[in-house]
Structure formats: structure tokens, C-alpha cells
Amino acid sequence: MKRTAEAARLQAVLYLKTGKVVMPGLALLIFLVSFYSVGPVDLVDSTVLTTLALALVMTWAGLSFARAEEPIVSQLLQLKLHSPAREIASRAILLMVFSLIAALLSAAWPLGKNLISEGAFFTRAVTGADIWGMLGLFFSASVMGGAFGALFHPRIFRDTRAAWLIALLGCLLGAYSGIISNSIPVFGFAAWLLPPLHGIITRFDAALSFDPAALAKTLIACWAYALGAFALKSLLLRRIRF
């Protein structure tokens, strides 16, 4: 585990040095600053919208992280770790760390504004359960978005432009999958392939607080999707070698 963590650390340094993290990071910051510029805001609604934005931004980050992978470094790491799976796992660990940072930042911004405004930034008082619910949604949606984006690895999708288009389309279809399924029922059979963003919107529609059952379903859906995406990527990359 220590060696895999060291590989993740090296990959983090190499990725950060490419500067490719700047654009998605900036996009998230711009969203947070503009979306939370005027209060008071509804706690659940604003959290759901931020969750969707985070999933989108982390899809971007996951995709850019996957496409910034240096094949020679990956080859050397696989040999030094004696396992392709451990090298792929080190990248998944790193994406989770990025997701955690993005989730903490996204929660800290509105909660900080609420603290500064002495509790007047949200339409109601914030409870401990709200904070845990917010963090759980942010982190889970970030990991899910990152895992979805990371599927668009250059060894899986050679064409960069197609990879970006399909990832964006996947997010949009994921957000509207319920509506599309209502109009085109056959779409429902393929909807599970898309990030489960629609469920996040519908489960908390007009909610005043985070219902524990709805929250649990959402977190399970996000993590199941993320783990499925990580497993699929690992399987494909072990088949499509260098």
C-alpha cells in the first residue's frame, strides 16, 4: 500500500506540474463565487446544484488527468510496482484525493459565507446533519464524476475531441435521463451506463432537508457507479496495453 501511495504521490506531482488542473479548478471557483454571490439561498437546492456542478467539473478533471498520463511513466510504474492493477489503483486513489479537496472547498465556501453572515446566508439554520449530508453528496458526486471522466483514457478513447464530446454528452444525458426515459422508454435500458445525476435532482426536489433514505440511495448510486467505472477502466487498460 505504501508503494502504491508513493506512486500516487509521484503521479500527483507530475499532473500538477502540467498545469492541467488549473482550468477545472478555476471553473469550480468561478461557479462557487458566482452561484453563492447573493443570499439567502435554500440549503438543499443550492447543495443539489453544487453537487451537479462538482460532478461536471470532476468529470473534466478526471478526463484531463487521464489524458495527461505519460505512457512511459505508467510503464515504469507498472514494472516497479510489479502490477498494472496497482498502478491503475494509484491513479484512482489520486482522483479520490482530488475529489475530496474539491468537495471540501465546495462545502467550505457557502458554509464560510454563512458563518461570516452569522447564519443569514441560508434560508434556515444549518445543522450538523446538513453539513454531513452536504459533504457526503459533494464527495460522492466528485468521485463519480472523476471516475466517469477517467474512463476517457487515451488507450480507451484515442480521439481526444470525441472523448470530450462523449463525456459532456454523458453528463447532460445523465442529468436528464429520467425525462428522456419518460419520452423514449427504450432509453431507460441504457440509462444505467450514464452517471446517475438525474437521481440526485429528483430525490431532493423541493426538499427542505436531506432525507436520510434519499441521501443513502444517492450516495450508494454514486459510489456504485464510481466503483463500476474504476473497475471497467482497470479491466480495459489491462487488456489494451501499450
Binding site: 508503494r3 508513493e6 504521490r9 509521484l10 506531482v13 510504474l77 516497479k80 510496482l81
Partner: peptide, 10 residues
């Protein structure tokens, strides 16, 4: 720094 990382990974 790269060699140090590779060594630790090994």
C-alpha cells in the same frame, strides 16, 4: 526527486 520517487516505489 524523480529517482527518489522511483526508488521508494520499488
Amino acid at each position: 526527486s524523480l529517482l527518489r520517487s522511483f526508488g521508494r516505489i520499488q
